[in-house]
């Protein structure tokens, strides 16, 4: 499988790999997985009091495209509001990384991870 230059770049120099305290009230954690390929992705966001994403980190066990997709969305999410972050769609990711059709599901995984992280944060905030 030939990866695009952008995928290779994120794969070799992944941005924002790491962990945030999942029990902290201002942190949202999104865990998603793709059974078909066995990929697991964890995306975490740290949100300021006025609803801006201050920090976003990820950890992904999967193929290059899955790593690149999650790395890219952490870059995109920083500085955005929660609503803006939820506007990020898998096709934006797939286009930016020039993912071939068989790898589009990796970008779906990243989109779902964003939703899961935002939902987790909202749930904590409301409780």
């Amino acid at each position: 499988m030939a990866y695009s230059e952008k995928v290779m770049d994120h794969y070799e120099n992944p941005r924002n790999v790491g962990t945030l305290d999942k029990d902290a009230k201002n942190v949202g954690t999104g865990m998603v997985g793709a059974p078909a390929c066995g990929d697991v992705m964890r995306l975490q966001i740290q949100v300021s009091d006025d609803g801006i994403i201050e920090n976003a980190v990820f950890k992904t066990y999967g193929c290059g495209s899955a790593i690149a997709s999650s790395s890219l969305v952490t870059e995109w999410m920083k500085g955005k509001t929660l609503d803006e972050a939820k506007q990020i769609k898998n096709m934006d990711i797939a286009n930016e990384l020039a993912l071939p059709p068989v790898k589009v599901h990796c970008s779906v995984l990243a989109e779902d991870a964003i939703s899961a992280a935002v939902d987790d944060y909202m749930k904590k905030k409301d409780s």
């Binding site: 998603v32 997985g33 059974p35 078909a36 697991v40 964890r42 779906v108």
Partner: peptide
């Protein structure tokens, strides 16, 4: 059985998988 777009999974289970994969790595 193999809808690739279905990524909803038991979060607890995924967390365990993540930890297990970390341990392997």
């Amino acid at each position: 059985i193999d809808a690739e777009t279905d990524t909803t999974m038991d979060a607890e289970f995924l967390m365990q998988q993540m930890e297990f994969r970390e341990a392997i790595a």
